[in-house]
Amino acid sequence: MNLTVTTMSEWRSKGQTPEVLFWVGSAGSFDDRAKKITKAFVKIMNQANVKFGVLGLEESASGDIAKRAGNEFLFQMQAMVNIEVMNSYNIKRIVTTCPHDYNTLKNEYKGLGGDYEVLHHTEFIYELINNKRLIISGDFKGKKITYHDPCYLGRGNNIFSVPRELIKKIGFDLVEMPRSKKTSFCCGAGGAQMFKEPEKGKQDININRTQEALNMNTKVIATGCSFCNTMITDGVKLLAEGSVEVLDIAELIVKAESL
């Protein structure tokens, strides 16, 4: 498997400008599960001959976690450093696989000097398909799937239909959980919860959500966020190890199209 990944500084030394910046994000760079999603998305972009750049070592944490945890200082420090780097490359368009970074880059960098068009990777893939740059054969006909809305993509930014459209294009039969779209139930990772033990309670949030997803009796649970993916994967391990796959939409496409 050969991935073509070019950094922004490499593009610059070639004297070229890529069409989009792929913001990999901290999880996408370091977390083992999230790295697979990063690579799946890169495969799709390679397949569609997308000229994209990454910041590589010049990228730093977006500050989303710091901000949700109340550390506004650290968030703004991170934001301003990242904005300075991105503005030095004259970035206009960003795509990311992380709904949290998507929200932060799109909505919160704006007031600090970073004004970009930001897309979630599902939006970007959708655009590639509409522009006929990526052909989806829809081989998964008749297979049942359920989709978990990441809070920061769905409720947070009103992106509900694009991921669902993609899932349908791949050919899956989408089964909706009782709590979906605007009333979707959190996986338990947001607001910096991913990095701490939950407070005392009766149940872990991810178990509650995973049980709901398992009740749909599908072979696959799809998400569009690596944190949701980790939380639900952990839930599946506890409740029904091996019975269900938890996959990102980018991974679904890679599987469907054998990329």
Binding site: C151, R155, G191
Partner: peptide, 10 residues
Amino acid sequence: ACTSCNACVE
């Protein structure tokens, strides 16, 4: 304990 999921706001 808050996950900042916005379910309450919604």
